[in-house]
């Protein structure tokens, strides 16, 4: 199924630009706190669990499972919004792409794929592992 939806560019800030610089190299990173050891989402400079500012972006596995999803039908081009639980622990909002939307299901294994945004850095989305 062709995916022709224009993807709005993410807003790049001083706080998140390291993530988007990695994304430009198609590296998917997850923020992990060096003080408490926990991964979180969405990436921020201050750990939401312990308040430490010792948060570092680490290369992630890019693997996850679909926690929930919804196919938007009231739109020019259909698209599947989802929450994917990452192998590293946290659950992130994303899109499920490159697949038959009618076959998408909760619990499905997915792998990260970067998709170009309108005029910003590429955005991490996920593709089902099985056809």
């Amino acid at each position: 199924m062709p995916d022709t939806r224009q993807i709005p560019s993410p807003i790049v800030t001083v706080e998140n630009e390291a993530f988007w610089n990695a994304a430009r190299e198609h590296r998917f990173t997850v923020p992990i706190c060096s003080a408490c050891g926990k991964a979180h989402w969405y990436p921020r400079a201050i750990c939401p669990f312990c308040g430490s500012d010792k948060v570092a972006l680490r290369d992630a596995s890019g693997k996850g499972t679909i926690y929930t999803f919804s196919v938007m039908r009231r739109a020019k081009e259909r698209y599947a919004i989802a929450y994917v639980t990452l192998a590293e622990g946290p659950t992130m909002m994303t899109n499920i792409v490159d697949c038959d939307f009618d076959a998408v299901h909760i619990g499905q294994s997915v792998t990260v794929v970067f998709k170009d945004s309108e005029d910003g850095p590429p955005v991490p989305m996920f593709r089902p592992d099985e056809a």
Binding site: P8, P10, I11, E15, P43, M72, N95
Partner: peptide, 24 residues
């Protein structure tokens, strides 16, 4: 809004936000 970069690209709307709760 700190969450905007992590939601805007994915087409979050009010309807599909609630729909994901229903699906789960």
């Amino acid at each position: 809004q700190p969450e905007a970069p992590w939601e805007g690209p994915y087409g979050l709307t009010t309807a599909n936000s609630y729909a994901m709760c229903a699906m789960r």
